[in-house]
């Protein structure tokens, strides 16, 4: 297993290099000049040229890539054009709200979706099963921003249960933190509940047809134990895989949710950076997302070892 971990970590390096080059290139293919944005509407051509030189944008593409790449090796993502700050520091500042949102969303999703999917599989074709299937279609088809505004309208404006927007850091206490985060996390979780409940249902339903479930029943075990220890335990690998994919998708999804609920996380930072053509920040954030994605994937692969003793790397 140590070997496997080492191999996987080494394999991460080329992935990250390729992502870095693609991100760097893509951004420079998009029209829009950061120097012009920074200089503002009143600037002369000389002003813009001066700013461009300051930012190093007048050098050749390869030189710029080289400078950035050199920084990356030492863990330096460069300086933001717009915020005039270190990109690493900037990501660090915005990390907590995003991670908190993603974490809470996943917790809500798993707590709701896995039991729901399991019960639906157990009572295959029953009312719960059909209700869940109907809900999934709905969950898949409503865009996050529509659902977000709807929930804000009812729960914040009408019922006044939750704040309309904003974020309170964890250090201010769990209560306020949760109070601000619950509605956005719930909004975000709907589509993942739909996805993971369906996968759980399919996977558990298949496990329930297996011979070992028949054996478990022949042993006179209660249905709850048959369902959890025998069916769900064997259905876990696909469920965990999809939860992993969910986490990865979620990190991309926060861009929209954070905008809707005005949460000062990586999502809002990305939007601001794109509007300002803040190349180093965009590069840094995307690279960071890619890194998270790789880490999540690795964790999912590692989890297989614990879920299924037949899997050995």
């Amino acid at each position: 297993m140590g070997n496997f971990l080492l191999k996987r970590i080494i394999a991460t390096i080329p992935v990250m290099i390729i992502v870095a080059i693609i991100v760097f290139t893509l951004i420079r293919l998009v029209p829009g000049d950061p120097a012009a944005v920074i200089a503002g509407n009143m600037a002369t051509n000389e002003d813009i040229a001066r700013i461009r030189t300051e930012l190093g944008l007048d050098r050749s593409f390869l030189t710029q890539l080289g400078i950035w790449g050199k920084g990356l090796i030492t863990g330096d993502l460069g300086q933001s054009f717009f915020f005039k700050k270190d990109v690493v520091g900037l990501i660090g500042e915005r990390l907590e709200p995003t991670m908190a949102l993603a974490f809470l969303t996943i917790v809500i999703t798993v707590v709701i979706a896995v039991p729901l999917g399991t019960l639906a599989a157990w009572r295959h074709g029953g009312w719960l099963d059909r209700a869940l299937m109907g809900f999934s279609v709905l969950g898949f088809s409503i865009p996050v921003f529509v659902l977000g505004y709807l929930l804000v309208y009812f729960f914040s404006l009408k019922l006044d249960w939750f704040p309309v927007q904003g974020y309170k850091p964890f250090s201010d206490g769990v209560g306020p933190w949760l109070h601000h985060l619950l509605l956005p996390a719930f909004t975000l979780s709907i589509v993942y509940v739909a996805l993971i409940a369906r996968v759980t249902r399919a996977s558990v339903a298949e496990a329930l047809t297996e011979d070992y479930v028949r054996t478990a029943r022949a042993k006179g075990l209660p249905e709850s134990r048959v369902l959890i220890r025998h069916a769900l335990a064997n259905a876990a690998v696909p469920i965990v895989t999809v939860i992993g994919i969910g986490i990865a998708l979620l990190i991309g999804g926060v861009v929209v949710t954070e905008s809707v609920f005005s949460i000062p996380g990586l999502g809002t930072l990305t939007v601001d950076a794109v509007l300002a053509r803040d190349f180093p920040v965009i590069q840094g954030v995307i690279l960071f997302f890619a890194f998270l994605y790789v880490v999540v994937n690795l964790l999912v692969d590692m989890s297989y070892l614990f879920l299924d003793p037949r899997i050995r790397y």
């Binding site: 070992y212 054996t215 029943r217 022949a218 006179g220 220890r229 064997n234």
Partner: peptide, 24 residues
């Protein structure tokens, strides 16, 4: 009936590979 299964009546199945829980 569940109380009798496994206790008073027990069963052995055809395919011992699939009849045992692979993750236990």
């Amino acid at each position: 009936l569940r109380g009798k299964r496994g206790d008073d009546i027990a069963m052995v199945f055809q395919e011992p590979m699939t009849a045992l829980n692979p993750v236990m």
